[in-house]
Design a protein around this nucleic acid. Sequence first.
DNA 1: CGCTCATATGCCTCGTCAGGCATACGTCCC
DNA 2: GGGACGTATGCCTGACGAGGCATATGAGCG
Lengths: 113, 113
Amino acid sequence: MESSFAILAEPNRRAILTLLVTSERSVGEIERRLKLSQPAVSKHLRVLRDAGFVEARVDARRRVYRLRPEPLMEVDAWLAPFRQLWERHVDALERHLDTLEATAAKGKPDAQP
Amino acid sequence: MESSFAILAEPNRRAILTLLVTSERSVGEIERRLKLSQPAVSKHLRVLRDAGFVEARVDARRRVYRLRPEPLMEVDAWLAPFRQLWERHVDALERHLDTLEATAAKGKPDAQP
DNA sequence: CGCTCATATGCCTCGTCAGGCATACGTCCC
DNA sequence: GGGACGTATGCCTGACGAGGCATATGAGCG
């Protein structure tokens, strides 16, 4: 199994996924919007499908692709432990801003304790 | 500038980042923990540094690397629009469970409204 | 100062992958 | 059924990237 990150490394594949957030799309639609050749789109969709990012529905002679959540959930889960990095950061920023406000209220802007 | 996703496509680089969540580490530490050659580790760290994922501190003859949040925040931001995919799903699941509870309370388990 | 430890860099090779082009497959319509 | 449309696949090529090995750099220590 290829890593979901490896799949997402390709910019056009990310673009396809982003397109599919709005609604499901046929191959031709994707081809036109992204200005890619039809084989290129089909190949990317193949990769995305094999990795579980999308699934296809048959509509007459078109194949309509839509998103599947699982692989992106995995990515989200991998990211989870790192979120403390900026959440703490935001907290620190907020505390800093609070400090600024407090000192400003005391008429001492930019004080360095 | 290389995409942050391209950087994360490499499993050993993800492993390095994961190692650094706990605490900052020297090159040698990473080398030992991940069983990679020293040049391999140095090269990955170079890539990670150029992409802003980590930064280095000098400690005597060691270089100690630590995480930087920005690139991972970008990834997180890219992911944001997709989260509705599974959050909606969870909501639906929760509503379903609520329904089950409610009907169970009425003595009608598994009712399909 | 010469040695050793810690890390970085250069060069080469091999594997992988995206895209182009040609073509195959499947479905609809006349 | 033959043609046109929509999509998939096979083959080839060019580019890039990871790792191995050798080596450079740089700091501390006797």
